[in-house]
Design a protein around this nucleic acid. Structure first.
Lengths: 107, 107
DNA sequence: TATATTTGCAACCATATAGTTGCATATTAA
DNA sequence: TTAATATGCAACTATATGGTTGCAAATATA
């Protein structure tokens, strides 16, 4: 479909998914889908779809236990976003760009 | 439409837009649209659309001079993404989440 | 002035996305 | 065994997205 970083960025580009992810991170424990969806306005199936997207990005791990599927946040893929961002650190301190300071840092 | 961070994340979630942005950052100089679109396979109008999205996210600044419109990268909005990411730093070092170390850092 | 260049605008298209509802199925509890 | 619960699957809808083409308008060049 698409590369890893794109999947991750697309996953977190949606505000509802960021909320779900955040809730799971704070929960710090695995939660079944229904329990997650109780915390949101949208339907359980809506939540399920978002969880699938998050899972495909590696941001959520799901494992079944009996009839329930326990979902747990995994922040690790965000490292990759951080990596991507890092390159631009050199540039974001002046609005006009700063190739100079980037090149300096290389020497 | 949508909040700032969402606009920024949506802007960089598209691989073509990341490429355009990257090219502009490296160019370190303002470039007219046609000149940018020459570096890509897709049509000029396609590029124009992407530039508009990037502009709305604040990642590109455009100013007209004569019949040309000069585009320039501005990495500053990426700070906001960095800010968002920062919260999850505490969690991305173990796959099972790490609320503990986050809470420790607060004490 | 006549021509070439840079651009914007609008219409269009195919596909993806975010959400819904209804129903079937598997597991657990009474 | 019967009833309740958790879930998946499929179909459907509306809108967004990423791209295209054609054309008109403004500016620059011959």
């Amino acid at each position: 479909m698409q590369d890893k970083i794109t999947k991750i960025l697309k996953a977190i580009a949606d505000p509802t998914r960021r909320e779900i992810f955040h809730a799971l991170v704070l929960a710090a424990t695995a939660m079944p889908i229904t329990q997650i969806s109780n915390q949101f306005e949208i339907s359980r199936q809506g939540i399920t779809k978002h969880l699938k997207t998050l899972e495909e990005a590696g941001l959520v791990q799901i494992n079944a236990k009996g009839r329930e599927r326990y979902c747990q946040a995994d922040a690790q893929p965000l490292k990759e976003v951080n990596q991507w961002l890092k390159f631009y650190e050199h540039f974001w301190d002046n609005a006009l760009g700063n190739l100079g300071s980037y090149l300096d840092s290389k020497s």
